[in-house]
């Protein structure tokens, strides 16, 4: 519960942070809200020699519209995402997910970029951002690039970012009218993190049938998983409770969850179907309104 000693540097710009990362190499670590990193340091699971604070870098916070996308700065804290007018207008699913992270203190400090970069398999945001088809802008000294969410989460606590890159922005397409999104989570009774969760983005024609569906599941793999079978099952079909239930029943297909001290494999697969149904139903409900 006491971290090993470390040095602290407050970066003033993304460039300076990038230079510091190169300078400190393996021994340096970016600090955003600190709500994943500092607990890990206190348990001495991580012992970086230098913390490079991004919190002092201007311009990395806030939500704005850029064409047909919402752009969220990596340092935007969960509370600000959840209460953003733009997010509440266009991406209710993201508001759902950000409001069920931890508790109020955690939401006031933890950042969307930190959560994404940390890639905890039990985190909320990777799941909903997968459903919302987000992409991530990452920057290094040699320039910036964009990574699609489906390519981003590569393993437990591992992303497609290189060690010399900083995540600066999260881009989320603004869904067309006739689309709704939602997120549903079964929290672990101790940690509050995800046992399983589901995010859904559903487009519905006036006729009532589904024109597009992205459904993502958390808790069943090394990161968020697309429930491809569920999406296919919904495609082009009328969004009746029966069709939704049948589609949701396929949410855990071809997944390989692992048992932990709380829940077994069969349970996780089953509740994934329950939460997929809840998320899809809620997303469909939002199309109406």
């Amino acid at each position: 519960m006491f971290p090993a000693s470390f040095a602290y540097v407050a970066a003033r710009s993304v460039e300076e942070a990038l230079e510091l990362m190169v300078k400190h190499g393996e021994e340096g670590k970016l600090l955003a809200g600190g709500h994943s990193l500092i607990p890990a340091m206190k348990l001495r699971l991580q012992s970086p020699r230098t913390l490079i604070d991004l919190g002092t870098v201007p311009g990395l916070r806030g939500v704005r519209v850029d064409g047909d996308h919402l752009v969220i700065g990596a340092l935007t804290v969960h509370t600000d995402v959840a209460s953003s007018e733009l997010v509440r207008k266009h991406l209710l699913g993201l508001a759902d997910a950000t409001s069920v992270i931890g508790d109020i203190q955690v939401r006031n400090r933890g950042t969307i970029g930190g959560s994404v970069a940390h890639a905890d398999p039990a985190a909320d945001l990777p799941v909903i951002l997968t459903a919302l088809n987000a992409s991530f802008t990452v920057q290094s000294l040699s320039g910036s690039r964009s990574i699609a969410v489906d390519d981003f989460f590569t393993d437990f606590f591992t992303t497609a970012m290189n060690s010399d890159e900083i995540l600066t922005e999260i881009h989320v397409p603004i869904p067309a009218t006739g689309t709704g999104s939602a997120y549903a989570k079964l929290p672990h009774p101790a940690s509050g993190y995800v046992v399983v969760s589901a995010g859904a983005l559903i487009a519905r024609q006036a006729s009532g049938s589904c024109t597009a569906a992205r459904v993502a599941i958390g808790g069943l793999g090394t990161g968020p998983l697309r429930a491809v079978a569920t999406e296919l099952e919904l495609q082009g079909k009328p969004l009746t409770p029966q069709i939704i239930a049948a589609a949701a029943a396929k949410a855990a297909e071809e997944t390989e969850p692992v048992e932990d001290s709380y829940a077994g494999v069969e349970y996780k697969c089953h509740v994934a179907t329950v939460y997929a149904r809840k998320a899809i139903e809620a997303a469909v409900e939002r199309v109406k309104s």
């Binding site: 672990h188 009774p189 940690s191 993190y193 709380y262």
Partner: peptide, 16 residues
Amino acid sequence: VQTGTFMNYAIMRAAD
């Protein structure tokens, strides 16, 4: 030890 932290030992909280 498998549940040696509040992350996995589900103590009863007020809201529960």
